[in-house]
Design a protein around this nucleic acid. Structure first.
Lengths: 224, 224
DNA sequence: GACAGTTTTAAACAAGTGTTTTAAACTTCT
DNA sequence: AGAAGTTTAAAACACTTGTTTAAAACTGTC
């Protein structure tokens, strides 16, 4: 009898989660097909419905699965402390915290590894929401937004309005997810832009510098 | 015989364009259904295929139709000169030009009128491209990107690298289209944010101030 | 008023996709 | 080895959506 190779030995359920992670992250919920996912996983079409009840059940499971990676430290670059979510480097200055947040956020919007699945799924939910958006906002997006707004609040000072803090947070986040959501047009407009680790570091530096300069400008002009 | 009212008197073809403009701007190409469009237009299901051959033909026609409005001056607020595209206010300082560009861009990403159709369709194409993206990039997106990069080049000075100019342009654009693409999550995260004319003006002011401060910060720190 | 061309209508068709079903294959335990 | 439960497999089903068809209604012309 032929010994099955390691890939086939992995449980179908796990292979489905892996394949679905890639597909959902790249395509979002609606454009992903379970036929595609099952094909990539080397599984039968009915496997999704057997293991996860339906497509939405798989989507939820993948979200949880991806979340389990999202807390790990960041493999693609130095400087992130294990166990910390985006922007919660303890004992750092607000400036450092903002850089850290942006860097982590950007890697998870651009990267292709498991760490990026969660970020990409959140980004897709932002523009093409599903029934899961409310849960994802409550458990994934709002906590991170709160962290970011806390950092920005420190940078702007207590004189800044709540509205201004929120607007700045949106300005920061939008720059990051732009590189995931609008990749098709960036590739056509700026085809020389690279996405290897070094280039993403450079992009993170730009966004951080851009945003810090913007916030400092607001403080300097007392534009609260 | 009963006289048909003005709406029914309008040609089916025109009513289809109007209905499709709303739907395509809001949903993008894939999520829009011709059944929905025909229903809104009070037309039969086969009308799209009769007048525009197929769904894509309608999409192209709507893009052209919307473009015919995009050159008109901007109804929802003062200060825009007729016949000028975003950011090409003649004889203004680069700062004023940037504000103008952002303001126009933002109104066309948030607005609900015909003027916004083109901007919203471009934004959707950026994240969910169709076969039309290449044409839209060539005729609509790249010209505007070139204008924006020209403005930023003036602000940054000739010492700035091409890469930095492009990155700043992306930072500006991303903040604007965020309000169209990610509206679902903004509504949940910041439910107090309003979108009447005055509020959009305020948002445009914020993005302009944010971006100008960022660019000035880059210049000040010689971070080219 | 009859005719030719145009437009609209209702229905059916075709393709893609999520889901269910039923049986076969496999695993585990005794 | 045999039985019970678990997993996989192939096919069919149901629904949505874009498209086509063929007849009906309409419009303008003579």
């Amino acid at each position: 009898m032929i010994e099955p190779d390691t890939d086939s030995k992995a449980e179908t359920r796990t292979r489905l989660l892996e394949a679905a992670g890639e597909v959902f992250a790249e395509m979002g919920f609606a454009r992903a097909t379970i036929r595609d996912i099952c094909h990539r996983a080397g599984a039968n079409l009915a496997a999704v419905n057997y293991h996860f009840r339906d497509k939405e059940g798989l989507y939820f499971a993948v979200a949880k699965y991806a979340e389990s990676f999202a807390d790990q430290d960041f493999a693609n670059g130095p400087g992130n402390q294990p166990g910390n979510g985006p922007g919660v480097a303890s004992g750092a200055t607000p400036e450092q915290q903002l850089r850290f947040f942006i860097r982590t956020f950007l890697f998870r919007a651009i990267g292709k590894d498991r760490l990026a699945w969660h970020g990409k799924m959140m980004a897709r939910e932002m523009s093409e929401p599903t029934a899961m958006l409310d849960r994802l906002v409550a458990e994934g997006i709002r906590p991170r937004a709160t962290v970011l707004e806390g950092i920005i609040r420190q940078l702007l000072g207590s004189a800044a309005t709540k509205w201004r803090v929120e607007a700045c947070a949106r300005s920061v986040v939008s720059q990051c997810i732009f590189y995931h959501l609008c990749r098709p047009v960036i590739d056509r407009l700026h085809p020389n832009q690279r996405y290897d680790t070094e280039s993403v570091e450079q992009l993170a530096d730009h966004i951080a510098q851009f945003s810090l300069g913007a916030i400092q400008g607001i403080v300097a002009h007392k534009g609260f």
